[in-house]
Design a protein around this nucleic acid. Sequence first.
DNA 1: GTCCGACCGTA
DNA 2: TTACGGTCGGACG
Length: 983
Amino acid sequence: MKKGDHLFLVDGSGYIFRAYHALPPLTRKSDGLPVGAVSGFCNMLWKLLREARDTSVRDTPTHFAVIFDYSSTTFRKEIYPEYKANRSAPPEDLIPQFGLIRQATKAFNLPCIEKEGYEADDLIATYARMAEAVGAEVTIISSDKDLMQLVTPLVSMYDSMKDKQIGIPEVIEKWGVPPEKMIDLQAMTGDSTDNVPGIPGIGPKTAAQLLEEFGDLDTLLARAGEIKQQKRRENIIQYAEQALISRQLVTLKTDTPIDVGLEDFGLEPQNGPKLVAFLKSMEFNALTRRAAEATGVDASEIEAANLKIEAVAEARGPDLDSAGSDASPEAATASSQMVVSSKPPSSNVSATPADLVKARTDEALSAKIDRSAYTTIRDVASLQIWIDEAMASGIVAFDTETTSADPMQTEIVGLSLATRPGKAAYIPINHKSRDGDLLGGGLLEHQIPEAEVFRLLKPMLEDASVLKIAHAMKYEWLVMHRHGIDLHPVDDTMLISYVLDAGEGHHTMDSLCDRWLGHKPLAYKDLVGSGKSSLTFDKVEIERATEYAAEDADVTLRLWRLLKPRLVADGLSSVYERLERPLIPVLARMEERGISVDRQILSRLSGDLAQSAAAIEDEIYKLAGEKINIGSPKQMGDILFGKMGLPGGSKTKTGQWSTSAQLLEDLAAEGHELPRKVVDWRQLTKLKSTYTDALPGYIHPDTKRVHTSYAMAATSTGRLSSSEPNLQNIPVRTTEGRKIRTAFIAAPGNKLISADYSQIELRVLAHVAEIPQLTQAFADGIDIHAMTASEMFGVPVEGMPSEVRRRAKAINFGIIYGISAFGLANQLSIPREEASQYIRTYFERFPGIKDYMEATKAFARQHGYVETIFGRRAHYPEIRSSNPQLRAFNERAAINAPIQGSAADIIRRAMVRMDAALKDAKLTARMLLQVHDELVFETIEDEVEATLPVIREVMENAAMPAIALSVPLQVDARAAHNWEAAH
DNA sequence: GTCCGACCGTA
DNA sequence: TTACGGTCGGACG
């Protein structure tokens, strides 16, 4: 090697862990072997080497090596036995990848370097200094701060994941000190992930400031007495020795004995067949193709390499010898080789996702939760230690404690973090004393100021390499967004559970904790009480709050470790990653925007309704002959069917007379006056109490808009639900009801756009059941209910009586709902035999429907769940019940779920894509509401015409490219000043 | 104060 | 005949 050469040193071990956490989990298709980190690693090497051939890129390597940790026992353990003693075993689905990445390195024809007793960092330091000594340039492919001490004018670092060069200025910018002072800085701050002690209370900021003032650690220790802050001075004096040990630990060895010299790192040409064989064995299809093209080999002629998984110890995380496993140092460091396709013999090394899930399930149940082990963070330095640990580990579970369940109204009281199972802390921020004056208690002491907490947390919360985990992340996201934080990337244990187990009970943290961890966490109610005497969380004692809040973060992290691998094992990763996780920020922003509701219109309507209802009330009292509570079905039933002796139809299951609208309508049709009045009265009072009177109470005091809350994990089918207020059941069917919608208005200068799918569920049915007449009718754009009627009854579409079409329409809906003769008879008010005959006729005309329904039932019976076209599952654990009614109910639901659920998935896909599509088109339209098959937007008037086609385009193509539907999707979109007119 | 059933608004 | 959430009355404590 000589001056002008350029050596690339890849921190292979560092890369593995970072890639594992930062990249989406990926498994080999054929057998589920986890290969996410291998994939990231190969792509990175490919990119680095491709640029090496590209002469237009300046910084190209002439020499190249990939460096790995060898084992966990290094010379540092002799200096300080506790070094890295806090490391837990690596994730099980990472273990097989250690060996694979080494094989990948060899497949790329690159030197693969490791040395017993030394860490990769020491080898990198040694090689970097050697190359520098002969005047060559060095690029270290890593973002590890431990390597930053090596940076010089000739040595720089490159963060391949963020595509960021790290030179001297970047080090100074990030740490406040030049590279040569990094060792002293690390010696002072310590490193919680490696268990390097440092000096308590000294974080990077303080350390940089002290180094600025005193020059170096030795001088600082010598002149520590000059430090003004008492606590800091005491700590530095008391822990001086510890700082010196820490310095030894963090100082990289530049004289590591080496077996391979720089001259052997010269970049060799690719061995095309060898590389392609490896990539093929990993089933990295895109990269295989690229590699074959670039090296000029025919991939189809090359057989996939016959891979073996070597058990390899990695000092970075896997402390295999202390993990209590049977992986002895010998087994770990030598090459106890296992063929991938066979089960690993009596080993806890998980080769398949199922093994991993099994291991994690056992782990979750056996590990006990100890609330007394949690920490309360009351000062900036301690907080920084936790943040550093989160940054280093790349994973953190968190939970906010707030004053309200409504993220739009709430104040943050505190925040908890968990970095490892059992390791969690609570940061009290706004706890108040309970016995305050009338204004409420004052802020308690020893809490870090809110602004400071957010300032410190923000970089971590927004760091692309740190995964933030919460239970019900949308709430956290929204609270954080309102504090100016763009939380990402995220995982949500509630949504993971929902994807895995929709239909198997609720997905609250308490129920999951009980189910999976066999543990009952502290109940919120026990802290704050209930009812009138309940407190807001800011009045909870900090000690109690710590136990509760930290436990939530701890439990969230434990649940994540258990549930996340199940996504891979069950083949549900894409449902989670495409339909659930990306919807979190989309829905959060919709909730945050809210919609404008006109108070005056509602108030006027309320008055009108009150008047009309009062008039009807008087007439009802007259007809009934006494004053009763009309709103009481019990009292109304007694009057109608007891006192007045009308023919009562059915009784409810509690033995009361049924007074359903349907039944009263039937009585009215027979000429009875009172039932008609009751039906009218009910409609008016329903509109008044549920809508005109309740909605104004939801207008936000600051935004003056109404902010609903969408539940992402509430339904068994994949639909959303809306509450507080429910904006998915605003009246539309009756003239009176529709007036409510006129109160939903666009902001001044804006319009509302309503875009809804036409007959989406019937279209989905036509697709999944493959019904030629239906697909043809949708392709031709003809009236689907009329076509159905025509097929069934032999009546031509032209001049069809409306009653005939109405019946066909009811049957079509009935099919989607898992039709029964009883239900159809009820709906159409016809005898059950007649309904039965309709259904028989329908199935004769559309035999594919019958086949589809039978096949769906059989699938559900066999598997206990059904699937949408995108693979979302809905579970029906009671479908094999011996109770015929219960079983039949589950069968109908199972028939409905793939149809309703596929439609729900389609609109979810549209929503996930919508913001980017509008942005690309440079439009300002914003999504406000979702009503199952409808999206409501708000946009400035001038952009309406340009916006409509963009919305339609996204919605109509939402199934693509995952699914090419056999029917077109049709979207009707209109703009107006209010929702009624736009719909 | 809390729970449940009846009823009814939406897709 | 599918999927939801809100309001009310009434019974329970």
